[in-house]
Write a protein that binds this DNA or RNA. Structure first.
Lengths: 197, 197, 197, 197
DNA sequence: CATGAATGAGTATTCATTCAT
DNA sequence: TATGAATGAATACTCATTCAT
């Protein structure tokens, strides 16, 4: 019965993605050690056992979340941006606008950023494969910054340091979004000021 | 022959402070859930039981750390700064220099900032008493920012939002200091750019 | 396929009662401090964790055992007895026969009496709610004794003191039943002699 | 310096006896497992370490208490009583009076009886040496009971069972004395009724 | 000797994981 | 497949014992 098999696969994928998605925010908020499977399951609204139908272990789930995050193509945008034949200031404008929009509209964005940055911070021994993505993102940003420095629109300093600073602030407001309800979001201009003169 | 009561008290106070201090950095690095008493004790170089001689529970220890942090008087400096008869730009210069210096030299500073900000982020139901301190620090900073806006040296925006942004960046680099060894610290100028025109 | 809710509830109730029952005898024999959860679990034939699925703590389990004991309705029998239109001597005969029979046949009876009396003995600060039950049992016994004194079949003395004495002896032989294997049980007549002329 | 050595020994003995004595009541009340060395030391009013100057371990202390109890000569009295050329009823009268007096006046008596009986109840594996004493006491009492049965003043039944019953009641009121403050003591006559017609 | 701070083996409790239904 | 009751390894906490003062 190919039809039902397909349907089945679809249902499975739906559940898997639901767990993956809901878990991401939960882990981002509570950290790995601070997340209990029982709490997570209740939060998702499924039985504890169900998680183990789709993932081998808590750690496996966590890794899969990271794999999913890294699969996201928001990197592509920055990559494209870096290659465009416009000046750095404009690139930074566009990038900052886009980031603030995502942070506002896309519920998952904050989680993705938070988990990603936490991973980089922790430098979990040898997780080079995962952090590679982050570095790539930073590298493209640094390229833009370097261009800006040549053009005189960006402040002096190691480009990588400045890229790191820029994304650090994005991380900061991802945390705020994840944890608090009452806060005033900074503007794209505030964000840009990390690097622009 | 009973031990001299004074000596005893002194020994107790020393050990208590030692635990409190060493634990702060450990908690800041690993989080509450991620900290095992056995590891913590080994890290401090004492027996597990010793921790329970001085604190009722892991949670109690964590609370006492926060109480200690809040007892710190770095607030006083900002308070004083806010009242000085100089312009806001200078105040922000001084404050930023001081912060970066502390971050560089004082091992505990990063831990204090990190734990404090995490606490604020979590705003765990009714922790109003504890977060009050943070707000005070923010309030004085906001005052300086307001002054700067009147003087034309500080960008537009809600003063509290900008103060929050400023200290957010300090938090960011406290995390870097706590978690990573290889990173380039931003300069006082980079920090100032969050609020200065 | 979710387990049927009914079935679940039933399973849970069964296990809870099993733990409650088996623990009662164990606590009665070994006391609260003398009972290790690990031993208790092995004795019941379940995992240690299972106990914590049904009870919050060792202390909670102990309290629930007492609550269960107090819920027993052996009191009802004495209450009924006290109201019957027969003479006190007969009442005491019947009651004593019944008690000795229970002690012989019902494995739990000794445990119930032992825990109950221990509770009364300890009068743990403010346990008034729990000891109330015991007092009720004593009160009805005292009523019978008073009747017997009017009828001339019961010895002189404060009725409550004599009721206390009577049940004290029941406690005594509950302990023997719980702790020793080689002993000669007293007869209903021996028991009656505590109060009958 | 023989003088000071003597003095020293005396001081040592005083402390040892103090610990032994105070511990007896504490153990009788709380049981072995329920007694913490720290609580016991505070109760006696000495440092925890001091106990270990005089006793090897908690268990050693417990054993020494039993050794002390068994060294008591109240047995002698019953032994003498058993041999006197008077009738059993009188012997039982005298014994009961004496027991109730001790229970009233001698603070330690209740503790001695309680610990002793608990030991017998627990039949601590192979503690035959210790329980032997108890059995001796019971044997003499059983002799008196047997005499009483021949004389017609004592009820029928295995003499050892009746002796056990008699001393069981003494144990019962030792417990009351140890644990409660508000209770009415039974009279010597009440006690006698366990065995007398 | 007397003390009480420090300790770690022992005990209570939690939580990721398994498995019968 | 989905469930949640059961589990025991991991973790928090206690307490008998040691030892420097």
């Amino acid at each position: 019965m190919p039809k039902s098999a397909e349907k089945c696969k679809e249902i499975r994928d739906d559940m898997r993605n639901r767990i993956l998605h809901e878990s991401m925010l939960y882990f981002a908020r509570n950290g790995f050690a601070g997340t209990k499977i029982s709490d997570l399951a209740r939060h998702i609204g499924i039985g504890q056992g169900t998680i183990y139908v789709y993932f081998d272990s808590k750690e496996d789930l966590f890794k899969e979340i990271h794999r999913m995050i890294n699969g996201e193509k928001d990197i592509a945008r920055v990559k494209v941006l870096a290659k465009l034949p416009i000046n750095a200031k404009q690139k930074i404008h566009m990038m900052s606008k886009e980031i603030m929009r995502q942070l506002e509209e896309n519920e998952s964005f904050a989680g993705i950023i938070a988990l990603n940055t936490q991973m980089v911070l922790e430098e979990a021994a040898g997780n080079t494969a995962d952090t590679a993505y982050q570095l790539e993102l930073y590298r493209y940003t640094a390229e833009i910054i370097e261009q800006g420095q040549r053009e005189g629109s960006v402040v002096e300093g190691t480009p990588m340091k400045l890229a790191d600073y820029y994304w650090g602030v994005v991380y900061l407001y991802s945390l705020k979004k994840l944890f608090t309800t009452r806060y005033e979001m900074i503007s794209a201009e505030d964000l840009e000021r990390t690097v622009l003169k």
